[in-house]
Amino acid sequence: MTKLVQVAVAILMQPNGEYLLASRPNGKGWAGWWEFPGGKIESGETAEHALIREAQEELGITPTHIQPWIKRRYDYPATHDAEAKTVLLHFFFVHAWQGKLQAREGQQFAWQHPRKLNVSPVLPANAPIMQALSLPPVYAISNVQEMGEHAFLQALKKQLDHGLQLLQIRESQLDDAALAKLSEEVLQLCAPYDCRCLLNGSSEKALQLGYHGVHFNSERLGTLTQKPNHLLVGASCHNRAELEQAQSLKLDFALLSPVLPTKSHLETSGMGWEKFGETLSGMEIPVYALGGMQAEHLSLALATGARGIAMQRACWI
């Protein structure tokens, strides 16, 4: 019977969004492969305590600002230098620490930009996490219909100045000419900030207008048979089955909503955080929480396993 090993894993984050990878030292299984630093949770030890102990032993630092994130299970096959095992990885964001990084086990360190990985090979269990980290924690959704175009573009410029990196244009009320005009202004505004823009609609229209990606509503998702090429692809989901459909198509991410009461869904009170977390459990696809989100909900969304939050109104205030 394959043994289960519980592991605490640290995602050390720099203010600029870079995260730390470390090479596995000689003498250990998978030596030379890159991973997030961490180690085995000992009997009677909490994951948080194991994270701090391992950081002190391996890296010479003491984490001071820890944010629990997701758990991932992975089955490692036997290799010439390691036996088969199943790991349950407890991932934590580490935003601050005391001390200076030290390679106490002879490992190498590399700070990585989420969208520009330049080390290899990477341990297989870490690959889905890196995919999730390539997405920012906040996904903004346009609100031209309520705000008006001028006010929206002003608010967008303000958010870009504050670091916005992912935007969905969702304006079904616009005809083709008006959408093309808005799209041109938005894409020009976002380009210097490297903010990726997705169109809520068809992949054909997204490509035609020059968007970086496309976002499908749940109805379009239900008819999709393969992921469009050359686009970042997201989808709106409202239950586990729709999330599994998005994952089976290998979409880049999904939204799950509504979590809390929202003006867009006055007929429902929302699923709440407990059900949201249960619905996400075990999913590999990065998921954003949507519905009644405010900036202060980000830490709670991360703790339930989400990649972050999506907001349509609160981000433009």
Rank of each mutant, 00 (worst) to 15 (best):
M1Y: 07
K3M: 12
L4I: 12
E18D: 15
S23M: 11
R24L: 13
P25W: 01
N26W: 00
W30N: 14
A31Y: 00
F36K: 00
G38D: 03
G39T: 05
K40F: 00
E42M: 01
G44K: 00
E45C: 00
A47Y: 02
A50Y: 00
A50W: 01
I52C: 11
E54F: 00
I66W: 03
P68H: 02
R73V: 12
Y76I: 05
T79N: 07
E83F: 09
E83I: 07
A84V: 07
T86V: 13
L89N: 05
F91N: 12
F92N: 11
V94I: 07
A96R: 14
Q98I: 10
K100C: 12
R104W: 02
G106E: 00
R115W: 11
R115M: 06
N126A: 15
N126S: 13
P128K: 01
P136W: 06
V138I: 11
V138R: 08
Y139T: 03
S142D: 03
Q145A: 12
L153R: 05
Q154M: 11
Q154P: 02
A155W: 04
A155T: 07
L160W: 02
D161P: 02
L166H: 14
L166P: 09
Q168Y: 05
S172I: 11
S172A: 13
D176M: 07
K181V: 12
D194S: 15
L198P: 10
E204T: 15
K205E: 15
L209H: 12
G210E: 15
V214N: 08
H215D: 08
F216Y: 08
R220W: 06
L221G: 14
Q226R: 09
P228M: 04
L231G: 02
V233S: 01
G234N: 02
C237A: 05
H238W: 04
R240G: 10
A241P: 06
L243Q: 07
Q245R: 10
L251C: 10
V259I: 13
L260G: 03
K263H: 12
H265M: 11
E267T: 11
M283W: 06
M283V: 08
A289Y: 03
A289K: 01
A295I: 10
A301G: 03
A301R: 01
A303M: 06
T304G: 09
Q312S: 15
R313Q: 13
W316F: 01
